[in-house]
Amino acid sequence: MDPFVVLVLCLSCLLLLSIWRQSSGRGKLPPGPTPLPVIGNILQIDIKDVSKSLTNLSKIYGPVFTLYFGLERMVVLHGYEVVKEALIDLGEEFSGRGHFPLAERANRGFGIVFSNGKRWKEIRRFSLMTLRNFGMGKRSIEDRVQEEARCLVEELRKTKASPCDPTFILGCAPCNVICSIIFQKRFDYKDQQFLNLMEKLNENIRIVSTPWIQICNNFPTIIDYFPGTHNKLLKNLAFMESDILEKVKEHQESMDINNPRDFIDCFLIKMEKEKQNQQSEFTIENLVITAADLLGAGTETTSTTLRYALLLLLKHPEVTAKVQEEIERVIGRNRSPCMQDRGHMPYTDAVVHEVQRYIDLIPTSLPHAVTCDVKFRNYLIPKGTTILTSLTSVLHDNKEFPNPEMFDPRHFLDEGGNFKKSNYFMPFSAGKRICVGEGLARMELFLFLTFILQNFNLKSLIDPKDLDTTPVVNGFASVPPFYQLCFIPV
């Protein structure tokens, strides 16, 4: 058959498939802009700032609406009420993970971030239990974070109060905490193996944040037939998995079943207990991918939040002064901060919360999916439909947070200066898919920041009023603009 005829037939089939998918069930789905064949609503979305586009569309179609990214149908949730109703009140029905062709290629359905069903539930339950087990290797997770915080302070001392970009050092600290939990080992910041790991993690975040990856996920045929950065992403992930597998083999040879040292040991012990169960989800494949998931999810998000926190503290020296006064009063100079201190430091706690609220790190979270046909607000959402959640619409709700575009710790303080919780605080998402490392991340943010401010004054290279804190939105995360500062020993 003539190649031209084959091409026309293929394009015609794709067009018909697109029209059929977009028209099927439209009477039951939430409203939304009319999609174009094949490309859907992509032309109506700013790929570099999806969150802003969703906010604009919500003003037209309401808090629940339908979009098509290519052939992929998505239902968008915008605003606290619908997000709570879906992710919390109907948590089980909305607990699936959205379709990610690239991740599915890399992870093969294993791990904790992109798995679904029984596998996801069992691996998540085990990971939560293990991360909360403060007795691994007779050292609590808090001990590990405190140790890394001391190392971080010593690295900052080496800058000798000269101007520096904190990106690298602030990236090393949370990565080392995860390494300590998974591998029972922290690395020197100049260790070549550690630097290679950091390089792969950072490069992957840069790649994932590009519009090209959005295109690959919406048109998965590209993955096999086109060159691009997605190939580098898959190569980096394969490198990390190979490295983790080597460490798993080392653990198998040296493990003491009665004295687990780290996450890998705990997983291997669980595998041993379930070795007679042919349906067990505790396999080497799941261990390797879960460890890679924890490394990827637990490094860049925390380091970016820390980097943004220091920029905001530079911009608002009056806030920094209040935090340091609270540190001096509650902790002093002669001991290290600990998590028990947080309950006695409402202002510092409010500042950490406000940093996370203000920066809105992951504006749309990772997409969910419905696990069955769901009736939601008089609409029928078919099983498997991807759910896109606007966390921006919750964290920047102007009824809950007056002047949401302003950095103001009073958003989390009552009139008496006591810490005030808010149900709208969802930087880790909400419901059954809430970030498994939430507790660890909150511990790291509090301890790293208090250790830094206990030991250093922060000095800006320019007038604080002239510092730009506008986030650089890159399609996946909101990151701070480049800046330098000086760490002046107190």
Rank of each mutant, 00 (worst) to 15 (best):
L268R: 02
K200G: 07
R26S: 13
L234V: 08
K270W: 08
D349G: 05
Y308K: 03
F267D: 01
V64C: 11
L366T: 04
E274D: 12
E93I: 13
L237T: 09
I387R: 00
K200H: 11
K383N: 07
K421Y: 10
K28T: 12
L311M: 11
A238L: 12
P363I: 02
F65D: 03
L237H: 15
I434A: 13
S162D: 15
V6I: 13
G25W: 08
R108Y: 05
Y424G: 05
I213T: 12
V472P: 10
F428T: 02
P363L: 01
K118T: 13
I141V: 13
P367Y: 05
C266M: 10
F401G: 01
K421V: 10
L170P: 03
N423L: 14
P409D: 00
T302R: 00
K247I: 10
D373P: 07
G98Y: 04
F134I: 14
S209Q: 14
G40E: 01
P101T: 09
L234M: 12
R132T: 14
T392K: 08
R157L: 13
E85P: 06
V153S: 04
P31S: 04
R329V: 11
L43H: 15
T386G: 07
S51A: 12
A161C: 13
Q340Y: 15
L312P: 00
I141G: 05
L195I: 08
I257L: 10
D408L: 05
I178T: 07
Q278G: 14
Y308N: 06
E405Y: 12
S140T: 13
D191L: 02
A321S: 13
D360N: 14
S12L: 13
K421D: 14
E325V: 10
K160R: 13
E142Q: 09
P382Q: 05
I205C: 08
K432I: 07
H230A: 09
L313P: 01
L7E: 00
F412V: 00
R26D: 13
I45N: 04
G228E: 04
V75L: 05
K190C: 09
F194M: 09
M129F: 13
K322T: 14
A350I: 02
F239K: 15
R377K: 13
V351A: 06
N133C: 11
L295P: 02
R125P: 05
L237I: 12
F419H: 05
I215H: 05
F487G: 02
L467G: 04
I434L: 13
E444G: 04
F65S: 03
A149R: 00
K432W: 09
V323C: 13
E400L: 04
R329D: 09
V153K: 02
L380T: 15
M345G: 01
Q340L: 11
P317M: 06
F194P: 03
L366D: 00
S58G: 07
F451K: 15
A321R: 14
D360A: 13
V113T: 14
V208G: 12
S140F: 07
E326Q: 01
C435A: 02
A477S: 11
D224H: 08
V6Q: 06
K247D: 07
I362E: 05
K138D: 10
K375L: 10
K84C: 11
